[in-house]
């Protein structure tokens, strides 16, 4: 069960991404973070905090639950419905540049759902995708704009991101077998 990122590494990575965001967007005007539930949310909050430290600007941050947009919801005749959690986006996304944050980019299906969901909130000027880990195996034409770490994996492996806010510790672990 190799640890591929420890707490320090995660911290440095997020700081690096924060700088890239400022550089790429030439400042923080019109930016807003939207974290994908569950673990995209604390990552988005950390990035917002870091950006405030760097630029002194408060970036609005929201959380997005994509359950109702999943493309596998009605695929099975019967099955337990995934738990739906609340989406909280307290600002208008119209004409903003939305920084969509998730922990792991894998098949791209979650991101597809998140894009659909976001569009239902308005018409952003742009959407940029931030992920802590890109593990490959895309099934949709989706690409991240900011990647914490590119992690080559096999489909059988699973990538577990643990965050203090939810799991009590910060680390990214590559687990063999029983892929999630």
């Amino acid at each position: 069960m190799p640890v591929v990122m420890d707490a320090d590494r995660i911290g440095r990575t997020l700081t690096r991404i924060a700088h890239e965001i400022v550089e790429r967007n030439k400042g923080t005007d019109d930016l807003a973070f939207v974290g994908v539930r569950t673990r995209g949310v604390p990552i988005a909050r950390r990035l917002a905090r870091t950006l405030r430290e760097i630029t002194g600007h408060e970036i609005p941050t929201g959380s997005l639950d994509i359950t109702l947009y999943r493309d596998d919801l009605m695929r099975h005749a019967v099955g337990p419905q995934p738990v739906v959690r609340k989406t909280e986006i307290q600002f208008s996304i119209d004409n903003r540049k939305i920084l969509l944050v998730d922990d792991v980019l894998y098949t791209g299906r979650t991101t597809r759902a998140a894009l659909d969901a976001l569009i239902d909130y308005g018409r952003p000027k742009a959407i940029q995708l931030i992920v802590l880990v890109d593990r490959g195996h895309r099934e949709l034409p989706i690409k991240a704009d900011y990647v914490g770490k590119n992690l080559p994996t096999s489909p059988e492996e699973s990538v577990q991101v643990r965050l203090i806010e939810i799991d009590g510790e910060d680390e990214v672990v590559l687990e063999a077998g029983g892929g999630a």
Binding site: D65, L68, V83, A117
Partner: peptide, 19 residues
């Protein structure tokens, strides 16, 4: 609890999800 999430859907500009 689920209804709380659903209530938020009704506050959106597009009050419709594909679930």
């Amino acid at each position: 609890d689920t209804a709380e999430a659903m209530k938020e859907v009704g506050t959106r500009p597009i009050k419709k999800v594909p679930a």
